[in-house]
Design a protein around this nucleic acid. Sequence first.
DNA 1: GCGTTCAGAATTGTATACAGTTTAGAATGC
DNA 2: GCATTCTAAACTGTATACAATTCTGAACGC
Lengths: 230, 230
Amino acid sequence: MAKQESNVSRVYEELRQMAADFAFMPDQRINESELSKRLGASRTPLREALNQLVAEGFLTFQNNRGFFCRSLTPKYIQDLYEARVAVETEALRLSVRRAEDSEIAELGAYLEQTEAEYETADDPEARLGMDETFHMRLVRLSGNSELERALRSLNDRIRYIRLIDLKRMHDKAATRVPGELSAHSRILMALAGRDAEAAEAAMRGHIEKRREAATEAVRIAFSQLYVPHD
Amino acid sequence: MAKQESNVSRVYEELRQMAADFAFMPDQRINESELSKRLGASRTPLREALNQLVAEGFLTFQNNRGFFCRSLTPKYIQDLYEARVAVETEALRLSVRRAEDSEIAELGAYLEQTEAEYETADDPEARLGMDETFHMRLVRLSGNSELERALRSLNDRIRYIRLIDLKRMHDKAATRVPGELSAHSRILMALAGRDAEAAEAAMRGHIEKRREAATEAVRIAFSQLYVPHD
DNA sequence: GCGTTCAGAATTGTATACAGTTTAGAATGC
DNA sequence: GCATTCTAAACTGTATACAATTCTGAACGC
């Protein structure tokens, strides 16, 4: 009956993807029977997966009323970005002390390799993937699994917003001065130079800039998608 | 059948408490049938609660083999403490900008009120409660729910270690010079003075000191309790 | 002894049934 | 009309049953 990979984890991954892709509208109640039919599983494993997503902050739960998609308020978005700052700046501090030169060089190679693609990629999802991968790899250099876990959760919950943000940024990408260093490069160079202060400042500035852009993007997304409750 | 508070959440809270109290030995396999009997619920709600705990990092799960208590390696403890630094220092930065003077004063009053108790309390759990409450309230001053959620999860997972640490500290408490400011007071005073640098430095030093003590405590706990696998 | 094989016992995985609660909408009174 | 009450349908909460897998330990060959 159960295969190599369990049904719960498959359902969990699908739900996570659905949540990140906004398959559920904010505040929408989730119908277990219908969803279980759609995912080809019974309610038992579905509810186990849903409970995991509640614990991770994707969904909420009300007793006897069921599971709800979490509403996306501007405050919540801001909280997520601030938590990202907390995780990524501390990870950077640790990486300055711990990361091997070779590891930093590898990430630099990845950055160089993807940067050309990044500029030309029309697909915002591809760009988002590269962006997330860079940040995840950067945090991984700290060697701290908890920070890595935290960033993964934050990224997943923030993905839809970042997608909107990146789409908008793409339209303006041509305006970037060619010789100018990308924010990612600046961060990585500071790390390579073991300059914790500069690295942290670059990271802080980078995320803050993206948060501001995302806030604007959220404002637009809100007006296009739905009206939040508060 | 279902009451005001759901069975799942009751089971969840009990399991969380059990995990924090080390009712499960690290790497121990959790027998669902037995546990469900003990908690007075069937396996269905039990497994829903267990899945939440997996998502939060208390337990691990292997397909077709079930749930396991997470093993407590020194590396894991260190990761948790470093994550605490990330969360608490960033929260402090935000609080310096955002917290009202009155809120800071309230927390100061709490600190003053508990500090006397703290010195004389024989019960290490009472001291741990006061310590956790202070840190949670401090993070709450930042107004960021995600950081609050993150600290709660970290605290719960680290609780047993902190308890051991506080027990040892209690034995040496008499050596503290009476006029000396407590670490908590130093942090709060820096916050009240809106000095982000000083507040962060104080927090960093405080947690780092506790981490070192906890590492030592863990070393002792390890040798007393069990032999970890790596 | 020591590794292998193989029942059967124990345990997990999930579908299903049904109890209990909430929700929606019709019927009613004003 | 509009609020209220009531009834049926829809949905959630959980116990249970049984299939699939893993585990245990005894029997066996070497």
